[in-house]
């Protein structure tokens, strides 16, 4: 097995596959994470907003959105999005990123909602009583406090998202395209060096490195926000 690993590492072509997959994985995760965070944030705010006649329909839409996207497998969503909804030539990787983003948004929205509801109700009342509008109170008073509770959950979701993107190769991937991620690289390497354990271990290490970096980053962010409050 070690021989196989060395064989893979000594071949520039195979290593370049891995590097390509590495960066593609990170890129796909990054874009869909940003999309997911944005979507999740908006959906959480809509869900938590006071119910009045303007918010009725958006609330129902957001509720349906989380139900559907948390209730169905992401692989299924990927296939539907890529081969049915956005069956446009050349749009495949973008449709896939969109899917991951939307899927992740559903989970993120619940994390953010939980973080916001964990803030004492009196804070909102105090903000409103001073004359801030609901949204102002949310942004200036509630969210800065909630973010401390939200970050660990979001970090969790981001790590899960990174690994979720490993199915992106299922919709077909060739080296050089954006859908060619680490997992796809492992399969491609297998064709040259027929030892899945070797390529698997190497790719697994790459994933670990990324996850470890993410955990480190999350801890840094957490510390930063913990400093704000004693």
């Amino acid at each position: 097995m070690f021989q196989d690993i060395i064989e893979i590492l000594s071949s520039w072509e195979l290593v370049s596959y891995m590097i390509q997959g590495f960066f593609n994985s990170i890129l796909v995760t990054l874009i869909s994470a940003l999309l997911g965070l944005f979507l999740g944030f908006v959906v959480a705010i809509v869900k938590i907003a006071p119910a009045n006649k303007w918010m009725k329909v958006p609330k129902i839409i957001c509720e349906a959105y989380t139900t559907v996207f948390r209730g169905t497998p992401v692989a299924l969503q990927l296939f539907i999005m890529v081969f049915a909804v956005f069956a446009i030539p050349g749009f495949k990787p973008y449709a896939a990123i969109l899917t991951f983003g939307i899927n992740s948004g559903a989970y993120v929205s619940e994390s953010i909602r939980a973080g916001i509801t964990s803030v004492d109700k009196g804070q909102m009342e105090a903000g409103r009583a001073m004359g801030f509008t609901w949204l102002e109170t949310m942004i200036r008073i509630i969210l800065p406090q909630a973010i401390k509770n939200i970050i660990p959950a979001i970090g969790n979701e981001m790590i899960a998202l990174l690994k979720e993107t490993s199915i992106i190769g299922w919709v077909g991937s060739t080296p050089g395209t954006l859908t060619f991620d680490l997992n796809a690289a492992a399969s491609t390497i297998y064709r040259t060096v027929p030892n899945y354990l070797a390529s698997g271990i190497l790719v697994g290490c790459c994933y670990l490195i990324v996850v470890y970096a993410m955990v480190f980053l999350i801890k840094c962010i957490e510390k930063r926000f913990a400093k704000n409050e004693r």
Partner: peptide, 30 residues
């Protein structure tokens, strides 16, 4: 509400802001 101040039983100070920021927040923003 800006004309009617309120003091709560549970204080409801904003824990993420210093005392001074707590006091100046509303006058500065509103």
């Amino acid at each position: 509400r800006q004309k009617v101040g309120m003091v709560f039983q549970q204080f409801n100070l904003f824990p993420h802001l210093t005392v001074l920021q707590n006091i100046t927040l509303a006058p500065m923003k509103l």
